[in-house]
Amino acid sequence: MGEISIKINIADRIYPLRVDMEEEEVIRRAAKLINDRIKEFQENYAVRDKQDLLSMCVLHYATGMLKAEGKSNASEVGIVRAVDELDSMLTTFFNR
């Protein structure tokens, strides 16, 4: 597919973007999540400065991403250990 031009509104600012057609929905959903989170922070913390709200939003999503990466890495380590253990058992079995 090709690229398309879209406009995304984040924190009351318009950002013109050129994106692959396949990515448009994901980008629009991401912008909505960001705006929803900004609105939530604005209501719960009485913060009005857009820069502060954006910073809080970035911190929120970066923290979530790092936690997800940590869980993914821990899962990968467990899988590698299980494969190594299975490999060791198979090697022992076939070398009898």
Rank of each mutant, 00 (worst) to 15 (best):
I8C: 05
F41Q: 11
Q42Y: 07
L53M: 08
E85A: 07
L90S: 03
E22Q: 15
N9F: 04
N44D: 08
A68S: 03
F94I: 11
L59A: 13
N95L: 05
K32N: 11
A74G: 03
L54E: 09
H60E: 08
M65W: 09
T91F: 02
A30I: 07
M21V: 13
V83G: 00
A31F: 10
V19C: 07
I4Y: 12
I8M: 06
H60A: 04
T92P: 00
H60D: 10
K71I: 01
M21Q: 13
E43H: 11
S88T: 13
Y61P: 06
S88A: 11
M21L: 12
M21W: 12
I38F: 05
I79E: 09
E40H: 14
E40N: 13
L86H: 02
A62R: 06
K39M: 14
I4D: 12
E22H: 15
A46I: 03
S88E: 14
M1V: 12
N44T: 08
K32D: 13
V19D: 11
V80N: 13
E40F: 13
A31M: 09
K71S: 11
D87W: 00
I8F: 05
G2H: 05
S72M: 09
Y61M: 07
D20N: 09
V58L: 11
S55D: 04
I79W: 01
R37L: 04
K67W: 01
E25G: 14
I79Y: 07
G78D: 09
N95S: 10
D49L: 06
E24F: 06
I79P: 02
K50Y: 02
G78T: 00
L54V: 06
E3R: 14
I8K: 04
N44P: 01
L33K: 15
L90T: 01
S88G: 04
K32Q: 15
D87R: 00
V83Q: 03
E22C: 06
M89P: 00
L90Y: 01
L33H: 15
T63E: 05
S72E: 06
N73Y: 04
S88Y: 05
I10V: 14
T92R: 04
G2P: 03
L90D: 01
I10C: 06
E24L: 02
I34Q: 08
D20E: 15
